[in-house]
Design a protein around this nucleic acid. Sequence first.
DNA 1: TCGTGTGATGTTACTTTATAACATAAAGCT
DNA 2: AGCTTTATGTTATAAAGTAACATCACACGA
Lengths: 133, 133
Amino acid sequence: MTKRGEKMQAEILGLLRAAGGAQSAYDVLYALRVTHPKIAPPTVYNALSALTKAGRVHRVESLKAYIACQCDGAHHASVLSICDACGTVEEHLAPQLVKTLSGFVEETGFRPQRHVIEVHGTCSECEAGTDGH
Amino acid sequence: MTKRGEKMQAEILGLLRAAGGAQSAYDVLYALRVTHPKIAPPTVYNALSALTKAGRVHRVESLKAYIACQCDGAHHASVLSICDACGTVEEHLAPQLVKTLSGFVEETGFRPQRHVIEVHGTCSECEAGTDGH
DNA sequence: TCGTGTGATGTTACTTTATAACATAAAGCT
DNA sequence: AGCTTTATGTTATAAAGTAACATCACACGA
């Protein structure tokens, strides 16, 4: 376990945290190219993959995009609410719900390993006003 | 509302039903090219999109792939269990679970419109044996 | 300390997935 | 029928992701 990639990972994590919403891998790539002009896609994917494994970044499957983990640290299945109006993604911990879901599929003999729970809709701000965030 | 695309949609739906598991859009494309050599990606994506809107096909977000709706007909949020060993995707109706999930995000003022609930893991057959399906 | 092996990381080139923009054609209306 | 509207099909290209291999940092033994 070396440390070579950790700088890159930290930089990407910073970018994702600074960004308002979810960022595609290529959003990240182009942002990084400002300071590292020669960077290539696999470098970004490598780092994102490492960060994802470490539970510090989540891929938003239905957006093909990535967000910094908002609950920082521990591995956990989370519920993502995605505002289709302003793009904001909120992460929620819902251990009970995940447990219920696991129990549900286990009834058919299925052994669950990874949960993808994403809800699209409108966030309270966009629902309320025309501010468009 | 014309009928021009319905033949194509029916053909794609047939393919998806015949296929064992989830098919990528390009799997569908190449299958269609056997009989329609000149078909192009947007035709497939148009048809898949229409079928999806009609609730007859679901996109499996975490696989970038598509399956025929197994509950045929009505619009509904469903739970997909995806076997990472054999690729089988099962669709389950779980209105109560979807309701719980909706209630959960509504607590934050979010108005849910579309649910993506996918569980990766191992199906009972793959869990049991080495048959590999 | 220095060579050497090991495994993560970076690079090149490419594949897969998806869509913008425009051309075409079908159905409805008068 | 001729015109309007809107879905559909085509061309071309963009976006997302990865295989395969080269490179380099670190660990370990001599």
